[in-house]
Amino acid sequence: MTLPIKPPPEGEFIEIYGQRWSRWAATLSARLDIVISLIIILAITAAFHLHFQLLAGDWDFWVDWKDRQYWVTLTPIVAITFPAALQYVLWEKFRLPIGATLSITCLLAGAWIARVFGFHLWSYFPFSLIWPVLMIPGALVLDCALVLTGNFFFTAVIGGMGFAVLFYPGNWPMLAAYHLPVEVMGTLVSVADYIGYAFTRTATPEYLRFIERGTLRTFGGHSAWVASAFSGFVCVLTYLVWWHIGMLMTRVTTLPNRWRAMFGMPDHQTAAVAPAEKTHEA
């Protein structure tokens, strides 16, 4: 099907969301949707995965780092960032409440690509050691909270808390089997500990694991829930910050080129506008 370049003849109009669209423009818009969506998906996958690798890193890479304390606290806090920013863009500009689900699913896809090609095929690590975490339940709650409240503050409070609190139980069906107790060389360890021990990470010795430190681990045996609650509180704040980062990223601001004047060249831009008008916002 070829697109007509000239304007369509009379009568070829349709209504979308109460707005009048020519068929030609509607078709073009639909195609643009696909192109932009693909670009957004690739960009989010790459950027979010990089961000997550840098901040969650080893806690997400290895099964013997997935503890009840730091993994539970840190991972949701660094993972709620892109969902919040993307929720702003998609909700405020398009009323599309899929920002969190989209970004977290993209992150999971990126993580699996890295694990399969970088960790497993290239470096021989078994999947039992390197599977990535699941955060889709928390993302769904974030998006659903946004639809139901229509308000970023309540989404931050309800969704942000839900995002963190659902993290540990959402992963427990996968993780529980790795926390079975086992005796190795007369020492009690979990299966996850032994997997991390057996499949050598040459430059990552055991002591580098930042797990189960401090006094929280003795918190009545419920440190995961205490850590989840704390993480939820920080997630609420992080959400609010990143929602505003999303807002800033959608603002297009231009400034007059002062360098031309400083170098003695005529400044066409400032000459063309009123002297008092220094900043343009589009």
Binding site: D67, R68, A176, H179, P181, S190, E212
Partner: peptide
């Protein structure tokens, strides 16, 4: 039902 935390 019987699990242990990561050993540190």
């Amino acid at each position: 039902p019987r699990t242990v935390p990561l050993q540190a």
